[in-house]
């Protein structure tokens, strides 16, 4: 069972919910946690994995062998991103424009193009004290594209258990564009974490629409329940989105999370609630 925890709006408690769900699930199941927010990965701060495996990742970019190149310009013409320029007897490559699609390599009539890895980030993995197999991607500063790192992170099996864990939890990045879509692809269920404010509602709609487009079942967790207004509840009712858990606004919770403590450690009464949340998700997938 692969569960994506997503939110649209940042700071709604997505990582709080994802890490607590993982901690509770790990009591009975093998769990793999993938922090897919490669621009701002935070889950490790709450789950404390002992990282023991590290791999650099990126995209394959072209390099042109000047001996073989005839400067025909075919590679530059097929590149949709203008990452190659052929002017006269000179070939220029702009790695920051390259998407790593390999089209230039395929069309070169002289086989003058080979590819090399341009590193844009890294993957790390390790096991947490509770036995959760944890993996995260970290994008390098100044790099624009998160998706290639994410794609590698999703495929990466650092240890045996990640190949077929009972439960995989993916902590999604905020927003509602390509990285969120990539995180959801191949998942079974999307857990939408929101807060009952106009911002929370606006962004919930965006990310619920992605789950809808991908045909994935979804449920909602309302965090900081009690602040704002009732519009999120009304929206969920209208759109048949089940509200699976409400977490009331409590200053103690906010303070504990600020310090890096997980919700279920701070307020153990939430353990059965998260266990119930997991049961509700699997029940929805079984029917």
């Amino acid at each position: 069972m692969r569960i994506v925890v997503a939110s649209g709006k940042g700071g709604t408690g997505k990582t709080t919910v994802a890490t607590s769900l993982a901690l509770v699930a790990a009591q009975q199941h093998t769990v793999c946690f993938r922090d897919c927010d490669v621009e701002a990965p935070n889950a490790a701060l709450f789950l404390h994995p002992a990282f023991d495996t590290h791999r650099e990742v990126g995209i394959l970019i072209p390099q042109i062998d000047a001996q073989q190149c005839t400067y025909c310009g075919k590679c530059a013409r097929v590149c949709q991103f203008n990452a190659i320029a052929i002017v006269g007897k000179k070939a220029l490559i702009f790695p920051e424009l390259c998407h790593g699609c390999g089209s230039c390599t395929l069309v070169c009539p002289e086989q003058a193009i080979s590819e090399r890895l341009a590193v844009s980030g890294a993957l790390d993995s390790g096991v947490t004290p509770e036995g959760i197999v944890f993996a995260q991607g970290v994008m390098d500063v100044g790099q624009p594209m998160a998706v290639p790192i994410l794609r590698e992170l999703k495929e990466w099996s650092a240890t045996d258990v990640t190949a077929a864990p009972d439960i995989e939890i993916r902590d999604a990045p905020p927003g509602a564009s390509c990285p969120v879509v990539e995180t959801m692809r191949g998942a079974d269920f999307v857990l939408l974490v929101t807060e009952p404010t106009p911002f929370g509602l606006h962004d919930l709609k965006q990310v619920a629409a992605i789950a809808g487009q991908l045909g994935l079942p979804a449920g909602v967790v309302i965090n900081r329940d009690g602040i704002g207004d009732d519009s999120v509840g009304a929206y969920c009712a209208e759109n048949a989105l089940p509200i699976l858990l409400r977490i009331p606004m409590q200053r103690e919770i906010a303070e504990a999370i600020a310090r890096g403590h997980s919700l279920v450690e701070t307020v153990p009464e939430y353990r059965p609630l998260f266990s119930n949340l997991l049961d509700q998700i699997s029940a929805r997938l079984d029917t």
């Binding site: 940042g10 990582t15 621009e39 701002a40 935070n42 701060l45 994008m139 500063v141 100044g142 790099q143 624009p144 594209m145 998160a146 990045p173 905020p174 927003g175 990285p179 999370i257 600020a258 310090r259 890096g260």
Partner: peptide
Amino acid sequence: PGIGCPVISAVSGADLALMVTEPTVAGIHD
């Protein structure tokens, strides 16, 4: 939010960037 392409586009050409942060382990990390 984040550090990727949209942020790079938002920062380019700015005279000044104000970071609104929060004193949480995650906020400080980011």
